[in-house]
Design a protein around this nucleic acid. Sequence first.
DNA 1: ATGCTAACCTGCGCGC
DNA 2: TGCGCGCAGGTTAGCA
Length: 271
Amino acid sequence: MPELPEVETSRLGVLPHFEGEVVCDVFYSGLNLRYPVSTQVNDQLKGQTGVTIDRRAKYLIMRFSESSLLLHLGMSGHLRVEDSVDFIKKKHDHWALYLKNKALVYHDPRRFGFVVQYDEAWCKKLAQLGPEPLEAGFSSAYLYQQAQKSQRAIKALIMDQAVVVGVGNIYANEALFEIGVHPMAKSNKLSVSDCGRLVVALKTILSDAIKLGGTTLRDFVSGHAQPGYFKQSLKVYGRESAPCVRCQGEVRKLVIQQRASFYCEGCQSLL
DNA sequence: ATGCTAACCTGCGCGC
DNA sequence: TGCGCGCAGGTTAGCA
């Protein structure tokens, strides 16, 4: 999926096609996503007007005139805009909003994502997540305080959505390479200065990736079906055995919490 | 509480 | 050409 930059790119791509548009109908494939899609919730959308789309972590909140939906793109989901309601459905198109002259389509081969009513319970869940990485609440003092409490690998810590949201496998690897810290380094070994550099690296990488439209790997496309251009900026992710861009050493791979982790032995220290 | 593992699901690329 | 295997952007339930 989409990590934060891809979700944000989707939001920005779809938003102008959503605002002020009236929902004429809603399509649902009938296949279960992570959570069941409620036909009742779909029916309630008919006749409502799209107000705006917000993002919290990797979740999108579609706000309509009378109610709101919460979407998650899982690992393989994306949104696209079709210029006609008579668009040809693709395999794995699971849900769509039919607007007057176009459709917003949710496509998700692996079906790890979901579309549900955004209710009180979800509102509380989202409130319990960690701070947004691009906001002031994600500071070096904050990360240091979190890191001090934990013995876990630093990579696992920054991918923990209760610590900071939006950082997925790609950007976690890239940020740690950037600051020269090994992904297996124990969180509580990081100094205040290490945490400060990590916070800056994450903010920089995530915002640069948003500017470039996210990272296209397999099946992500933005709302306008333009590919993301961040992939060419990746320095370690997916580069096992390739030379390190900084020291020409070999990029290594190991698995941390079931996620592939890439690092340069020469450049990245265990502290 | 903390932290790890399996599971959810499909598609793709690789080696044989 | 075809088959089996491993792997993929995330999250969460369950277990030690």
